Measured scan of single mutants.
Amino acid sequence: LAALHAEGPLAGLPVTRSDARVLIFNEWEERKKSEPWLRLDMSDKAIFRRYPHLR
């Protein structure tokens, strides 16, 4: 499970980098069924690119 911001401008976004990794992994797991070539990237760089508020 990932903790998400409940309200405000960040509502629905992950609270920590660990939470972001959970979301990225879950999405990758779903997408790899139809796109088996996808690589999993959970590096800090990938997290910041996707969720800049975690910098």
Rank of each mutant, 00 (worst) to 15 (best):
G8H: 05
P9F: 08
L38F: 14
L38C: 08
R49V: 14
R50K: 15
L10S: 05
F25H: 08
N26W: 13
L13Q: 08
K45A: 14
P14D: 01
I24H: 01
I47K: 00
G8L: 03
A3N: 15
L40V: 05
M42D: 08
L1Y: 12
G8N: 04
T16R: 09
K33A: 10
D41V: 04
A46K: 08
S43G: 06
K33G: 09
P36M: 05
N26A: 13
E30W: 12
E27P: 00
M42H: 05
E27L: 07
R21W: 06
L23Y: 04
M42A: 06
T16L: 04
L10R: 04
R50M: 09
G12I: 03
K33E: 10
W28M: 02
G12H: 05
L54F: 04
S43T: 10
K33W: 09
E7M: 09
A6F: 10
W37Q: 12
S43L: 03
D44W: 09
K32P: 02
N26H: 13
E30S: 12
L23S: 03
M42Q: 08
H53M: 01
A20S: 01
A20M: 01
Y51W: 15
E27H: 06
E29M: 15
K33P: 07
F25W: 11
A2D: 05
F25E: 05
H5W: 13
I24L: 11
S18T: 12
D19P: 01
G8V: 04
T16P: 00
V22P: 00
G8S: 04
H5L: 05
W28S: 01
R39I: 14
G12K: 06
G8Y: 04
R39M: 13
I47T: 02
R50L: 12
E29C: 14
R49Y: 12
W37K: 14
V15R: 11
K32M: 08
H5R: 03
V15H: 06
P52N: 02
R17E: 08
A6E: 12
L23W: 03
K32Q: 09
E27I: 06
V22H: 09
W28T: 01
P36T: 06
Y51P: 01
D41Q: 04
P14C: 01
V22K: 14
R50Y: 06
W28H: 06
V15L: 10
Y51Q: 00
A11M: 12
S34T: 15
R49S: 15
I47P: 00
A6H: 12
P52V: 02
E29L: 15
I47F: 01
E27C: 06
A46V: 10
R55W: 11
A46P: 02
P36K: 07
P36C: 07
A11R: 13
K33V: 13
L4Y: 05
L23G: 01
P14N: 01
H5G: 04
S34Y: 13
G12D: 04
K32A: 10
E30T: 11
H5V: 05
R49K: 14
S43H: 03
E30Q: 13
R49W: 11
P14T: 01
W28P: 00
E29P: 02
A3D: 11
P36F: 06
A11G: 07
V15T: 05
R31S: 06
A11T: 13
T16M: 05
S43I: 03
R17T: 13
K45R: 12
R49N: 14
L10A: 05
D44G: 09
A6R: 12
A3C: 15
R31P: 05
D41N: 07
Y51I: 00
E30R: 13
V15D: 02
P14S: 00
L4K: 07
L10Q: 05
R49H: 14
D41A: 03
F48V: 14
L23V: 10
L40Y: 05
S18R: 15
D44L: 14
H5A: 04
M42I: 14
E35L: 07
M42N: 06
W37E: 12
R50H: 07
F25Q: 08
R50C: 08
Y51C: 01
S43E: 03
E35I: 06
V22D: 05
L38S: 07
T16S: 12
L1I: 15
E35S: 06
W28E: 02
K45E: 15
L10I: 05
H5N: 08
H53L: 01
R31T: 04
L38Y: 12
R17N: 08
A6M: 13
V15Y: 04
L1H: 13
L1A: 14
I24D: 00
L10E: 04
L4T: 10
R17S: 11
D41G: 02
L38I: 10
L4P: 04
I47D: 01
G8K: 06
L4D: 04
L38T: 09
S18C: 14
A6W: 10
K45D: 15
D19V: 03
A6T: 14
K32N: 08
R21N: 03
P36H: 08
A3V: 14
R21E: 09
V22T: 11
L54Y: 00
L38W: 10
L4I: 11
P9R: 07
L10H: 11
A2R: 05
L13T: 03
P9C: 09
L40D: 01
P52E: 04
E30H: 10
S34E: 14
